[in-house]
Nucleic acid binder design. Sequence first.
DNA 1: TAGATTGTTAATCGATTAACAATC
DNA 2: TAGATTGTTAATCGATTAACAATC
Lengths: 226, 226
Amino acid sequence: MKKNRRTCDVPDATIHRLPLYLEKLKLLQAIGVEDVSSRQLAESLDIKASQLRHDFHYFGGFSRPGRPYQVNKLVPALEQIIGISEPQPTAIVGAGHLGQALANYQNLEMHGFPVQGIFDVNPKLIGLEIRGQPVLDMDEIETVIGREGIRIAILTVPATAAQAVTDRLVAAGVVGIFNFAPTDLKVPEGVIVRNERLAVGIMSLSFKVNCAVKAARKKASKPDGE
Amino acid sequence: MKKNRRTCDVPDATIHRLPLYLEKLKLLQAIGVEDVSSRQLAESLDIKASQLRHDFHYFGGFSRPGRPYQVNKLVPALEQIIGISEPQPTAIVGAGHLGQALANYQNLEMHGFPVQGIFDVNPKLIGLEIRGQPVLDMDEIETVIGREGIRIAILTVPATAAQAVTDRLVAAGVVGIFNFAPTDLKVPEGVIVRNERLAVGIMSLSFKVNCAVKAARKKASKPDGE
DNA sequence: TAGATTGTTAATCGATTAACAATC
DNA sequence: TAGATTGTTAATCGATTAACAATC
């Protein structure tokens, strides 16, 4: 009753590393590695071993002092923590170019997020099959989300439609929204939104590129520098 | 000679907020707002005013004490800092579903990153026109990058091809890579990679969804709780 | 002037790293 | 035992927030 409460009060920085740990471990598992030390795993992710152990410590008890981690135990443990021990049925709302690209992206299913519904309002797109799934009329959102028990939706509609669609999704029972529309969403407490803002990402890349180019130029003009 | 050196030693957290500031300011500009205080701007972004001023302080001198910021001055100042005063010609390498989706994404051009080259190895895709740009044979990468002065590339090739393509891009003069391939890239110093790992993003969303669902259940079973 | 604002420094907070006892 | 490892706490580092003088 008291044991499994700690699982949720975890800093964001740690949460974002959990999938990275899992990915690396699955890679090790695939090539048959059985044991891995915090130092080895951390090194492959370019972080400090103490950070990894500190992260794991939030969940506790993946190994015992003196013994390295067992890959075959750590993988399911992390999957459990992340919440993908069971596949999480996922909806894609908006079957434009991006929605289709994501629906085609087989890695989604491989990582535990099988697409169980693709929706659009455009009659030209409705009925189009993507990896065996037909694009459905937006009107079926509530039915399908209820029937499939979908809790996670990927939003790829135009910014203008995003809030209205979000409201419907939340009302239908969706708890997590992966938002590709370039707009902020208002959601009730307890609903999680993750914004994937392409333009923001490329702009921060641009800032660093700019700095790198400047640095290179300075170096070139003062080749004796240090 | 001494003045404009400070522009590059800036924490990552600040760099990631710069595009958010710019986006909000452009929105204000579009509706004709002339002045904005740090408090107003910060509030709309759900951060503290002191954080915004602290961020701006790395670059210095956007206003004077006592006077609010002038939107029409701040927008070009931030564009300059981010490096998009001039449009940054951009290449998309990999014209599969995702590459096509991004090539169609007009926001890219609107934000200062016009797509000046789309490349693929697949003969079936070569020649296909996307928003007026034909998909080119990968063999033309070096020529086009040189001719257009492209420094930023968006990588949407399969993971297996990613490193080889990266090496060519870097050799041709690309300095920033927006990587959608689910693999780590090795690049020489001075080249910037930004990984956009869809699977990682959805997994950290899943973790939070899991927590939210658990919390809601607990609340439901103890409706008198607080 | 009184109230509001910025730029800038200091205080606080949180995340990363180091250290080390316990264990194998 | 000697060397390596984890779990866990303490020290360090960096980012956020508060405070305030200078200014309008």
